[in-house]
């Protein structure tokens, strides 16, 4: 029952997000707007945490699983990767490492959090 109510709230926010995205021509999909609406609704007390806790924990807790079928689509691109594979994979690996490292370090610098222990500037 609780899970069903949570699911209804979540789907309602998703539909609202999708409608807003389409109506306002926003470059962001409905799900991301729905995420913001969820945080906003909880913050304003329009949505109660106990309504969405159960369904929300299930969905967010299994987030990675829902990406698996997209990833299986990799099998369709073996031919593309045969030709440009090393370049594409190399770029992906290097770029991902750049974003990870630089973003993490950048945020530490802008928040002024420097670890004494590391001895770095």
């Amino acid at each position: 029952m609780k899970a069903l109510r949570g699911m209804a709230v979540i789907l309602g926010l998703l539909v609202t997000g999708e409608a807003l995205s389409a109506l306002l021509g926003l470059p962001v999909p409905g799900s991301v707007i729905g995420m913001a609406l969820m945080a906003l609704g909880l913050g304003l007390g329009v949505i109660r945490l106990e309504w969405v806790r159960e369904a929300g924990d299930f969905l967010a807790g299994n987030l990675a699983f829902f990406f698996v079928p997209v990833g299986v689509g990799f099998m369709e691109y073996f031919d593309v990767l045969k030709k440009d594979g090393p370049a594409i994979l190399g770029i992906t690996v290097l770029s991902t490492l750049c974003v990870l490292g630089l973003t993490g370090v950048f945020h530490r610098i802008v928040t002024g959090k420097k670890r004494k222990a590391t001895g770095r500037d």
Binding site: M7, S31, M35, G43, G56, N62, L63, F66
Partner: peptide
């Protein structure tokens, strides 16, 4: 082939968008 698999995969992928919405809960917490 992938297209055939995807008919079943779509069932799971349908939960991706609601799961992104659900991330609003920890965001609030």
């Amino acid at each position: 082939d992938y297209a055939e698999y995807r008919r079943g995969g779509d069932f799971i992928m349908a939960l991706l968008a609601p799961a992104v919405v659900a991330l609003g809960v920890p965001l609030y917490r």
